[in-house]
Design a protein around this nucleic acid. Structure first.
Length: 574
RNA sequence: GAGCCGGUAGCUCAGUCGGUAGAGCAACGGCCUUUUAAGCCGUGGGUCCCGGGUUCGACUCCCGGCCGGCUCACCA
């Protein structure tokens, strides 16, 4: 009943005339800015260091060592060496980085070499003396170590964490007593004081003024293990973000990813637009929609399954390059790669075709690797090593099918449906007899094509049957000019030269209606106004959709879409 | 929608053969003015997911349900 104890503190504070939730605290620095000012970022330089092991702890399958020497200064080391004993002296060789703000020797190995640096020299080179600068900072209290007449703690804001030191002599007896009595781990606090370095060398604020800014009524998750329960992490994402640095990191990366995509699009002449989410006709993709109701108009509306048909109307209207980043909603299953609402970027460029889109997509990836991944193009996804560096492999749809089945295009498009069903059954496609020809081809492709596509691959030239909005291939009337970009067996992008012949578009919609009657409940809906728009003239246009969540999964190296969506879909709590 | 696995203190986890529950962190009371997974001494804390059943007795065994994870199906 720690909650009760904390509530009681709030009551007492009010009684004393102290507001536990004050309106304002003047902040002069964000925590990371303070650190950046007095800390240089090491770049993995090799160091050989002789030092005594003060403490050994387990950290993500490795050993985290706290090292010291005669200077009393401290440095961390991460090692896979098993036989490290506290109190013993070793010479370590490894690479210097900053880990959660602290200088750390990673990949540390015990060696028999002459040291090339002392802890003191390393600290001097990367951790500078703040010379008592006054700062006023605020954040959440995430560590709290009272030691008699002094208290050490850490406060954390979004990008950083810094140690605070509260000394009775500095802050005064009464303030010290107040802090001891009323402040708890998890509270949001503001401190004003002077920067110094402790004996072990850690940048610290010696607190002159302390203000409680918001009382935390619940105890925080455990400091060492964080919060592991996946259900709690998703339902109470704020706890995940407070307790798990990796979660914070992933969503920062996602935000950066979106910012860089926007920047790249804008710099390349694309105009950001917004089109309806509430749509009277759910079209532009093959999917089951959510249905909602507008009371005043007394009509059912759909949450969009795609913005495609609206964006193309804008090209007709005279905007040559447009893009939209937003949510699509599909009333389907939930699993590690599907959330009912998901983020897509769609963009359209007049006078481009699908080959221009391939080049543009590669340039976009190049930009994102450089800005979001810091130039490192290799990622690990589901245990697969994937290199995101363009150019990507290009392979034709029917070549992949032939490779996987030995059957050519004519077989898939012209053979009796029975034969396709037979092949599908051999490949363990479920209930093939209920599928239309288009779906059969699609399923067979998913069985034999996609599983092979680990490294980024443009699959090009799809069958027309599967692509009602794509323009017929200039060299083959059975195909359309379309590609999917597949990475790690996941469809990440889908693009085509847009069909701009209104008559042909109308016929393709009619074909879709036939598919629907034949049992495909995801076949596309006819949109008559869209046809009318095409009748006014859509220039030759290339259009593409990129799945932002999946891109974020790849960039973050996580295998569940819920790890990159802040609040993934969940059933209501018990 | 189906199969498998899981749900125990605020958090991370133990819990033997069926005998009404433990540890670390967090909390509470002490000591401690450069600590850092601080340390030392002491204390309190449980709807064992929910509902039935079997049993003298159920965290444990059985049945049903809720929530989650994984795999499959469906989809991007």
């Amino acid at each position: 009943m720690e909650e009760l104890i904390r509530q009681e503190k709030v009551r007492k504070l009010r009684e004393l005339g102290i507001e536990p939730y004050p309106h304002k605290f003047e902040v002069t620095h964000e925590i990371h800015a303070v650190r950046e000012k007095y800390e240089k970022e090491p770049q993995g330089e090799e160091v050989v260091l002789k030092a005594k092991v003060k403490r050994v702890s387990n950290y993500e399958g490795k050993k985290l060592l706290r090292l010291t020497d005669e200077s009393g200064l401290e440095i961390l080391a991460l090692t896979e060496e098993e036989e490290i004993k506290p109190g013993e002296e070793y010479t370590f060789k490894g690479n210097l980085v900053r880990h959660e703000g602290k200088l750390t020797v990673i990949n540390a190995k015990v060696v028999d070499e002459k040291p090339n640096a002392t802890i003191e020299e390393i600290k001097k080179a990367y951790d500078f003396d703040p010379q008592g600068e006054e700062v006023s900072i605020a954040g959440r209290l995430v560590a709290w170590r009272p030691m008699g007449k002094a208290i050490f703690g850490h406060i954390q804001d979004l990008l950083g964490k810094i140690q605070i030191y509260i000394k009775k002599d500095t802050i005064g007896e009464e303030n010290f007593k107040f802090i001891k009595e009323f402040v708890d781990l998890g509270d949001i606090v503001g401190v004003k004081g002077n920067l110094f370095r402790t004996q072990t060398g850690e940048l610290t604020v010696e607190v002159k003024e302390f203000k409680l800014l918001s009382k935390c009524l619940h105890p925080l998750p455990e400091k060492w293990h964080g919060i592991k329960d996946i259900e709690v992490r998703y339902r109470q994402r704020y706890l995940d973000l407070i307790a798990n640095p990796n979660a914070r990191k992933i969503f920062l990366m996602r935000s950066k990813l979106l910012a860089e995509i926007r920047k790249f699009m804008t710099e390349n002449g694309f105009l950001e637009v917004e089109t309806p989410i509430l749509q009277p006709i759910a079209s532009g993709a093959n999917a089951k929609p959510f249905i909602t109701h507008h009371n005043y108009l007394d009509m059912d509306l759909y949450l969009r399954i795609a913005p495609e048909l609206y964006l193309k109307r804008l090209i007709v209207g005279g905007y040559p390059k447009v893009f939209e980043i937003g949510k699509n909603f599909r009333n389907e299953g939930v699993d590690t790669t599907h959330n009912p609402e998901f983020t897509m970027m769609e963009f359209y460029a007049a006078y481009w075709d699908y080959k221009d889109l391939i080049r543009f997509t590669e340039r976009l990836f190049e930009h994102l690797i450089n800005t979001v991944l810091g130039g490192k193009s290799k990622v690990t996804f589901e245990g697969m090593e994937i290199d995101l560096k363009p150019p990507f492999r290009v392979v034709r749809y029917f070549d992949l099918l032939k490779e996987g089945t030995g059957k050519d295009k004519d077989f898939f498009l012209k053979a009796d449906r029975e034969e396709l069903i037979k092949l599908a059954r051999e490949l363990e496609v479920k209930n093939p007899e209920t599928l239309t020809r288009a779906k059969l081809i699609d399923k067979i492709f998913e069985k034999v094509g996609e599983p092979k596509l680990v490294q980024p691959t443009f699959v090009i030239d799809f069958p027309k049957l599967l692509s009602p909005l794509a323009k017929t291939h200039r060299e083959d009337p059975d195909l359309v000019e379309r590609f999917e970009l597949i990475i790690g067996k996941m469809e990440v992008a889908n693009a085509y030269t847009e069909l701009n012949d209104p008559k042909e578009q109308e016929e393709r919609f009619l074909d879709q209606l036939k598919e629907k009657q034949a049992g495909d409940d995801e076949a596309m809906e006819m949109d008559k106004d869209f046809i009318r728009a095409l009748e006014y003239g859509l220039p030759p246009t290339g259009g593409e959709g990129i799945g932002i969540d999946r891109l974020a999964m790849l960039f973050a190296g996580v295998n569940s879409i819920r790890e990159v969506i802040l609040f993934p879909a969940m059933r209501p709590e018990g």
